[in-house]
Each structure stands twice: as structure tokens, then as C-alpha cells.
């Protein structure tokens, strides 16, 4: 507890009541470390990989993990699972993160605007949100990818067009509460321009919930790519990604269970890292 002494003031020498917080935010540290490792692995994939991830070797197909030269074995076409896993991380993390960035930005800005200005603008934006939400997520994404043609570019566009609504609703709800808070009134009372109130005063206070949601959204996006891959609309083969690895491996679940399980574990670890980061952010930044 720090004590602020007031020189020259006869009125108030005060020990401020700070909420006790842990010095070290364990959740955030562990989460960031884990996610950092995943990113590092993805970046260093060409260095760490023991084989070319797309090179087939039918003579050595479906080797069990621990086989000589193949740390995690090989798949049904004889491709090295370990190398594919590393290269898959590159694809999945990039698509997962990038496909969340633009919906995040678009949804947050529209949510800010809708919540702050209200009126017809709010009605318009929220009606569009309602329309998008009325369609099942996958039906819409699949339809869009189908229309735009398969490939990662189409996946970005499709997920952006569908994904922003969640951020918009979250941020709008937070803004509706925050704009009645007295600090927002005070900012208006002191004559600051609207854009400044929105982005300097409101945004930092409302964005936390959206950031937390984006953590789980990254995992959902990776899963969406898996689903799209199943329908032949995902990352085109033979580029390795975890989704297609799970997809390919599932037909051998009874004999070579690890083919689907190993990439599945990778998805779970990614999800865990992001969830830890989200919880850590709450602990670090939530002022409520």
C-alpha cells in the first residue's frame, strides 16, 4: 500500500485503497508463452521439419510414431506427420488470426457507432446484424466461399462478412452502458470532438469483451477451416493444415488412431493458449 502525502494541504493525507492484485499474472504469462511457442514453431517450420511435408513415400505409409526418421510416424501417403504438423501450424495460425482481424475491426467500429449515435443509424446496423445472424453461420460461409471460389482468400472474405456481427453486438452493448457513465458525460461536457471520445475514451473501455471473444473466435475459425476442408472448400490440398490432417486421419481411427489425434491435440493446445490469454486479459484489465 502506497501512501500519498499531500504537501501543503491541510485537508487530506491519504492511503489510497488499491485493490490487491497478484504481482504476476500467471494466466497471461503461461498463455502468451504457449502461444508464442506455437508461433515460433510455425515460423521455424522449414528449419525444424525433418521432411518435405508434401512429399509422398507410399513405401513407408502409416508408420507408427517413433518409427526411425519419423518422429510422429507417417500418414496414409507416407508423408511425415511431424513435418506436416509444423507446416500446418503456419497455415492455420495465419488463417485463424487473419480471418479474425478484419471482422474484429469492422464489427468494433460499427458497434461503437451504432451504440453511440443510436437512432436510425443504430436501427440500420442492427437490422443488418439480425439478417446475418438469422442464417446459420456455416451455411452462409459455405455459400460465400462457393460463390467466391475455394482458397484462403475466399475464406478470409467469407468469414469477415459473417463474423463481424458478433463483435458489433458485443461492442454496441458495452457502449450503451459506457456512454451513460459519467466519464463519457464528462468528456462530452469538456467539448472534445466525437471521434476522440469514441476512440480515446470509449474504445479502451469497451474493447476488452471483444478481445476476449476474439480469442475463442480464432479457435472457431480454425475449426471452420476444418469443416470447409471436409467439403472441399478449405485450404486446397496438398498444402498441410490441421483440419485436412484430422479429416484424412479419421478414416483410420480404428487402426492408426494417432493420425487424427495428433493434429487434434495441436488444435486443443492452441485453444488452451488463447483461453489462458483471454482469462489473463480479464484479470489484468477488467476494472469492474
Amino acid at each position: 500500500m502506497t501512501v500519498i502525502s499531500v504537501p501543503g494541504s491541510a485537508t487530506d493525507t491519504v492511503a489510497p485503497t488499491t485493490r490487491r492484485r497478484r504481482k504476476h499474472n500467471v494466466l497471461l504469462i503461461v498463455g502468451l508463452t504457449l502461444f508464442g511457442l506455437l508461433v515460433l514453431v510455425a515460423i521455424l517450420a522449414p528449419v525444424l521439419a525433418t521432411h518435405d511435408p508434401i512429399q509422398q513415400d507410399l513405401a513407408h505409409a502409416r508408420l507408427a510414431p517413433g518409427a526411425p526418421g519419423h518422429l510422429l510416424g507417417t500418414d496414409e501417403l507416407g508423408r511425415d506427420v511431424f513435418s506436416r504438423l509444423l507446416y500446418g501450424a503456419r497455415v492455420d495460425l495465419r488463417v485463424g488470426v487473419l480471418a479474425v482481424v478484419s471482422p474484429f475491426i469492422i464489427g468494433t467500429v460499427l458497434g461503437l457507432v451504432a451504440g453511440w449515435f443510436g437512432g436510425w443509424l443504430d436501427t440500420l446496423i442492427m437490422r443488418i446484424v439480425d439478417v446475418v445472424i438469422a442464417f446459420p453461420f456455416f451455411v452462409l460461409v459455405i455459400a460465400l466461399v462457393f460463390a467466391l471460389g475455394a482458397g484462403t482468400g475466399s475464406i478470409y472474405v467469407a468469414i469477415t462478412m459473417v463474423g463481424w456481427v458478433a463483435y458489433c453486438r458485443i461492442v454496441r452493448g458495452e457502449v450503451l452502458v459506457a456512454k451513460e457513465q459519467e466519464y463519457a458525460l464528462a468528456a462530452r461536457a469538456s467539448g472534445l470532438p466525437t471521434w476522440r471520445i469514441l476512440f480515446r475514451h470509449l474504445l479502451p473501455n469497451v474493447v476488452l469483451q471483444a478481445v476476449i471473444f476474439s480469442m475463442s473466435d480464432i479457435v472457431l475459425t480454425i475449426l471452420a477451416i476444418v469443416t470447409l476442408g471436409y467439403l472441399g472448400l478449405g485450404v486446397p490440398p496438398p498444402t498441410p493444415d490441421w483440419g485436412s490432417m484430422i479429416q484424412d486421419g479419421q478414416q483410420f481411427l480404428l487402426t492408426q488412431w494417432y493420425l487424427a489425434t495428433i493434429p487434434g491435440v495441436a488444435v486443443v493446445i492452441t485453444g488452451l493458449a488463447l483461453a489462458l490469454i483471454a482469462d489473463g486479459l480479464v484479470e489484468r484489465f477488467d476494472s469492474r
Binding site: M1, A10, T11, D12, T13, V14, A15, T17
Partner: peptide, 9 residues
């Protein structure tokens, strides 16, 4: 009259 400070923790 003012009472300086705050109640103890």
C-alpha cells in the same frame, strides 16, 4: 471541520 485521512485498512 475536516477529518484528514481515511479509515484504516
Amino acid at each position: 471541520l475536516t477529518i484528514p485521512g481515511q479509515p484504516p485498512d
